[in-house]
């Protein structure tokens, strides 16, 4: 029970941070994505030990474990664009699958190459 209350409070706190950042960014007319600034600020606060991990641990874990849940309402939004998918669905899905495959190949292989290079240099 205590854990549920703590977690809820922590999620509410993260909501409040995100809301305040939204306000701040629109007030200053900055085009930085809210979540990027939020991550940067939290990292800075954690690094300088102004806030501690334990204060957010349960709530942050909840949000990250159920990340897919937060994508679902936008995914349902596809029903408003049925005509796009009826007319162009194969081309759109084809583009996404081909492009995603290419990204995976390039990102995965280049990262693997550097990881192996680092291991070899270490053993010399």
């Amino acid at each position: 029970m205590k854990k549920i209350l703590q977690g809820t409070g922590q999620v509410a706190l993260l909501y409040a941070i995100s809301f305040l950042l939204d306000r701040l960014l629109s007030l200053l007319h900055l085009a930085i994505p809210n979540s990027m600034l939020g991550i940067a600020i939290l990292l800075l606060l954690l690094h300088t030990k102004i806030i501690r991990e334990e204060w957010f641990e349960i709530g942050a874990n909840w949000l990250l474990t159920e990340l897919l849940l937060f994508f679902i309402p936008s995914a349902v939004g596809i029903i408003d664009y049925q005509n796009v998918f009826i007319a162009m669905g194969i081309q759109v899905i084809g583009t996404i699958f081909l492009s995603t495959t290419l990204v995976m190949i390039f990102a995965g292989l280049s990262a693997q190459l550097i990881a192996k290079f680092k291991v070899r240099n270490h053993s010399c």
């Binding site: 909501y15 941070i17 995100s18 939020g38 991550i39 939290l42």
Partner: peptide
């Protein structure tokens, strides 16, 4: 909630 959830990525990063 996607916005606070994205901000929460600061914790695993740290």
């Amino acid at each position: 909630t996607l916005q606070p959830a994205t901000i929460a990525f600061a914790f695993p990063l740290y």
